[in-house]
Design a protein around this nucleic acid. Structure first.
Lengths: 176, 176
DNA sequence: TACAAATAATTAGTGTTCGAACTATTATGA
DNA sequence: TCATAATAGTTCGAACACTAATTATTTGTA
């Protein structure tokens, strides 16, 4: 449903517009952040032999064993079709198994194999885990500041109106 | 080079960690923003019959006529290979033309056809343009606040160290 | 000048992502 | 009950997106 790649490009551009006067400074920060994540993602791929989405799916299953396709899809914000194709590859490599539920034969549970668990165990933690300790030590006012910024952007996008009435055309955004 | 989709997922998760206490509130804001962008992107696709990347390429060419593949790639942060395949489709639909340069026969200039210009003219402005007017009216302190937040995240990622010495292994991030 | 290195674009191959159509199963309600 | 709606998962086709390899051309230099 959501094309997150495009979304991220727009978000970055919006943030840049938002800070036109600080454009250069912010660009440096953003590039550094993106570069750090990109490099870390490559490191993960090299060490585990998995792509980023594959690792995300695997981690999601590790947290909730025997997860349904739909649950995984919702957790990491991808369509069921995408999860199916990623699980296909993971299954082919013997990292997960599919088991059709006996109580509801529409459902399919996905579980890690011993080999899958091994890979998870060896892989470095996802980038965000590394930062939580630091983030937790932040001041309350800094957290509030970030939230205020996001809400401000949301308001400017009329996103609230959109959400309130799903029927509303997006064209409305473009007027007035 | 950069998998922006994965990057955006990590950024969103980092921001969420960052705001664990405000988790629910922020989640609502983020969903609203993403939904607004997603809907707007669909509106663009429906009106122009183009996908978002195609429109981005087209707009990039509109701004700098006779642009080289490499220039377009750099402008919208995609690989040359990706641009080639997108331009293939745009050319097939008669929206752009390729002209090999006479001075440097390695280079290929991409230009809009009359039909391509027509589509650009009719298409609504990209989402970010719509917000610039609002953003410009923002207070100086609000802009500074956003920049401060980004720089804080950048620092926590040790991204500056990374950028300072390109040789540095990403593994360094995971230590400290 | 001649030849290696660098550059620009493309092609090949793999993987991700989606919506729409399809199959199978379960839930609902007249 | 039994037809119909809803749900879970898959398949299919199209478009992206990347790296690595290839082709053609230009640049740099011995």
């Amino acid at each position: 449903m959501i094309n997150l790649r495009f979304v991220s490009i727009v978000i970055i551009r919006v943030v840049l517009s938002f800070l036109m006067k600080k454009y250069e400074e912010l660009l440096v920060s953003l590039r550094q952040v993106i570069r750090a994540i990109d490099l870390y993602s490559k490191k993960l791929s090299k060490e585990t032999g998995l792509t980023s989405p594959q690792l995300l799916v695997l981690l999601s299953i590790a947290e909730h064993d025997d997860a349904m396709v739909k649950e995984v899809a919702k957790t990491i914000n991808l369509s069921s079709a995408t999860i199916t194709s990623i699980v296909d590859r993971l299954e082919k490599r013997g990292l997960v198994t599919r088991t059709r539920s006996t109580t509801d034969k529409r459902k399919v549970g996905i579980s890690l194999t011993a080999q899958g668990k091994e890979i998870i165990k060896d892989s470095p933690k996802p980038l965000q885990d590394h930062f939580i300790a630091r983030f937790e030590s932040m001041q309350e006012w800094e957290q509030s500041q970030m939230l205020a910024t996001m809400q401000r952007i949301s308001t400017m996008m009329d996103a609230e109106d959109l959400d309130a009435s799903p029927v509303l055309e997006v064209g409305q955004i473009d007027q007035h």
